[in-house]
Simulated scan of single mutants.
Amino acid sequence: MRIPRQTVVAAGTVLAAALLGSSSMPKATSDVAVSVAPERLNVVGLPCFPGNLTLTMTNTGSEDRYADLTLEPTGPLQLSRTLFSSWLPAVDPDQPVSAPVEVRVPRDTAPGSYQIGVEVDQTRVTVPVTVDPLPPKGAGDNLALGEQATASSTHGNFTLCGGVDGDNDPEHWDTLTGWNDGTRAAFPDTYDVALAAPATINRVELYTLDSVKYPAHLNGLRDWDVQARVAGTWQTVAQVRGNTLGHVTTTFAPVQADAVRILCLDGNDHTYSRIVELEVYGS
């Protein structure tokens, strides 16, 4: 059967009108609520001092769904992730799903203001980020603070930077800070920190595990060498044996070094090497 032309035209007119009219209709809003904590962030150009954000998505709709949250940094900001994808169940009460993001900037980044765009379903949240000046490091300052750490291994429950993050409280060791090697009952282990520039050093402060729950004489580091990298070669500048204390100060003849290493030889429980904080000072 042949449809009259005027019927086709009329149908097209109705469709066009509907399409044009749709532009005046309110746009559908997302059923995913997004939040970022903190709402503003400050960072500095130290490799082991990242800023930390927590992203949270919550399904406020009536149907289970999958959602992609994208992050768009500006300027020099470097993110540990630019995509957070998750299955979001529709339950009552609402069930938030969260993920962490680390924010870093290069050491030579000029202080200033930047931002991170966070978007889900065209719903956008902007996080202002302020890059602060680098903290000064001169005579009497901890030269290891926030600098790049490396290790022979790291246990999955800990972070590599935990031993140079400025927190020497052993009560925080198993939840917030500290370093633990990842090879049970296998020694030696190494924990290194690279200094920002070659410096004359003569003292190392080492905090090992020593809490009410985990006392040093049972769980702390027992035997270790303090080594300094001088002209590209590791040199032993101090030795500690049979330690049962949570905080040990070692001094040695001044050396010009660009990195410091703790060569862990044994723990008091003979299982793991545990460092809460490593501090390095110059003469």
Rank of each mutant, 00 (worst) to 15 (best):
L265I: 08
T233F: 02
S24D: 07
D189M: 03
G267W: 00
A151C: 04
A16R: 09
K27C: 09
D269I: 00
R203S: 10
S98R: 06
T82M: 09
G246F: 00
L145K: 01
D258T: 00
L265P: 08
P128V: 11
Q239R: 15
A194H: 15
L143K: 02
T271L: 11
L83Y: 05
S35M: 12
V204M: 02
G117I: 03
I201V: 14
Q256N: 10
V91F: 09
L69S: 01
L160E: 04
D181F: 05
P93I: 09
W87I: 13
T175D: 12
K137G: 01
V248R: 04
T13L: 12
R222E: 01
A196L: 10
L265C: 05
P4M: 05
D121L: 01
E279A: 11
P106K: 03
A186W: 13
Y191W: 01
V212I: 14
L176H: 13
A90G: 04
N59F: 08
A17V: 14
R261S: 06
Q95P: 06
S85T: 11
A18L: 12
S80E: 07
N202R: 06
P106Q: 04
G61N: 15
P198E: 13
G12I: 12
M57P: 07
G178T: 04
S211L: 10
V9K: 03
V260D: 06
Y272S: 11
R203I: 03
W234L: 05
P100W: 11
G178N: 00
G61A: 02
K213Q: 15
T159R: 15
T249N: 09
V204Q: 08
L69I: 06
L20G: 10
D31L: 13
E72N: 15
L71V: 10
F252C: 13
Y214Q: 09
E205D: 11
E39F: 09
L88N: 05
L71P: 12
T58M: 13
Q148K: 15
V34H: 04
Y66E: 12
L265H: 07
T150D: 06
L134H: 08
L160G: 08
L19P: 01
P89V: 07
P47T: 04
R241M: 01
R40I: 04
I116G: 01
L20P: 03
T123E: 11
A37E: 14
D121M: 09
G117T: 09
R261V: 10
G162K: 06
P50R: 15
T82E: 14
C48Q: 14
R184V: 15
R203V: 02
F49G: 06
P93H: 02
L83A: 13
A253V: 15
T58N: 02
T190G: 00
R81Y: 03
C264S: 12
S62P: 05
P111H: 08
V248C: 01
V248M: 00
L143S: 05
I262T: 07
G21M: 12
G282C: 07
L143V: 08
A197C: 07
S113M: 03
R5T: 11
G138D: 12
S80P: 03
A231M: 02
D108M: 07
N52F: 12
R104V: 03
A144H: 09
D225H: 10
W234P: 03
T109E: 01
